[in-house]
Computed example of a mutant assay.
Amino acid sequence: MIQRILIVGAGVIARNHAAATRLLPHVPQLAAADPNPATRASFASEFPEASVYADAAEMLAAPRTGDEVVVVATPPWLHRQYALAAFATGRHVLCEKPLGINVAESDEILAAARAHRLHFACCSVRYLGRPILAEVKRRISSGVLGSPLHVKWQARLTGARPGIEYQPGSRWFLDRSLAGGGCVLDWGPYDVLTWNAVFDPAAVVVENAWISPLQRGPELPAGVTCDVEHHACAALTLVTAKGERIRVDYERSAACFGGRSELYQIEGPRGAINWDWLEWQGNTLRVFADSAGVDAQEIVQIPDDPRETSLHRPVLRFVAFLEGREADLIRDEQAWFNFRILCAIYASAESGQPQTVVKPARP
């Protein structure tokens, strides 16, 4: 039984995690730490049951009361620091996405979790628990589309650059040394999670990739660093344990030229499936197939579970797993694997060479 959840950070994301603790079968004690006095006061007002600290180190120094979880709800450059600090105190870690800002940080987090025999998970699990995704997996597994399969994952968004159009006060989004990257590390964790949840690859090859800093206005204030990508494309091959190879054509942008377009589709020789993979897009699954030489389309509405939202799932699923209940979750070696695929996209784009990532076995 998880006795206490300690949140590093007390901003908007941290409050979503705090709200999720109230939905658990056994409501644990709650604590949060944030250096900003106004943020702390606002958090304490919304969650009066919480112990609130100015210093995360002081919060983590408090004696454990049993099994506990630290939620790292800080900007990316602090993820490694607080994950390692939490492991050192014997606590499990739920980390906001991305897992770190580079390969070395993800390696350190995995090694520390193994050394302390603790678990960690990534908050990219937000869209994993949707019933519509479970139905996609069921249909793909049934072989209804035939083989080989091809994934078209295109999210050409415009006017959605973090630090510019979105949360313009958070300029750290634009600095790779702080954010780790741009759109690939911001939305890529959700994208990779979805393909991997459907196909469960044992290895992923990034055949080639392209990233673009996108040179367009508005002009940023003097002294603001902007060295992250806002548009990326990659060709990947997912290789399953059975040797099946699934091609993924991936495009993700926070801004681009030529207008917005989106398509999330898996296609095979006998048909195709696309679906509303994000909660706010809807709940529609579309299946395309041949019927005696005529195109046939099946449209299915698959509602979400009203008891939870994507904002609650990371805490609910991680605690469920730790307490021995069934849970859809991205954790430990799988979380490391997903993050390393994103790093491989950068490495391929920068080197011009294919990059292979192999999922490690759990010890």
Rank of each mutant, 00 (worst) to 15 (best):
L236E: 05
A18L: 05
V205Y: 04
S253Y: 04
R15Y: 02
A86T: 06
I13H: 08
R252V: 14
P168H: 07
L118I: 00
L285I: 04
L238G: 04
G66S: 02
P303T: 06
L94V: 09
G163W: 10
L342F: 07
A121E: 12
A19C: 08
G324Y: 12
V136P: 06
Q215N: 15
H17G: 01
G188Y: 03
S42M: 07
V206P: 07
T356I: 10
F321Q: 12
D276E: 15
V151Q: 02
I345N: 06
L263A: 13
L178V: 12
R252E: 13
W187I: 09
V103R: 14
A88M: 02
D304T: 12
Q297D: 00
A44M: 03
D276K: 13
G100C: 12
G182M: 07
A232R: 03
D67Y: 10
V357C: 04
P201T: 15
P201A: 14
P360H: 01
P306S: 13
Q353T: 14
V184D: 09
I211V: 14
I132M: 06
L157H: 07
S253C: 09
N274R: 15
G9M: 12
N208I: 04
A83S: 15
D34H: 11
P162Q: 12
Q301Y: 06
G169P: 01
S291P: 01
W153T: 02
L60A: 08
I13V: 13
V228H: 06
A361T: 14
A44T: 08
E229N: 12
A113D: 09
I140H: 06
G181D: 01
T74E: 11
V125F: 05
L185H: 07
V287G: 04
P168G: 10
A121D: 13
R313T: 08
P201W: 14
A255K: 01
N208E: 14
I2E: 06
L84G: 05
F339A: 01
V93F: 12
I5F: 07
I7L: 13
R171Q: 00
W277N: 13
R161F: 03
V224M: 08
C95N: 13
Q353H: 15
F43H: 05
K359D: 02
W280N: 10
L149Y: 02
D227G: 10
K242W: 10
L30P: 11
W277T: 07
A115Q: 14
I5L: 08
T21K: 03
S212H: 12
A361Y: 11
Q334M: 04
R171W: 02
A31S: 01
G243W: 13
G66R: 03
A232Y: 08
M59C: 01
V136I: 12
R245G: 13
S142G: 01
W336H: 15
G324M: 07
V239Y: 10
G223R: 00
A73T: 04
N338D: 15
A289E: 08
T240Y: 12
A134R: 15
A155W: 08
R91L: 04
P75Y: 14
C95W: 06
R331T: 10
A41L: 11
G182A: 07
A19H: 09
P221E: 09
G324I: 08
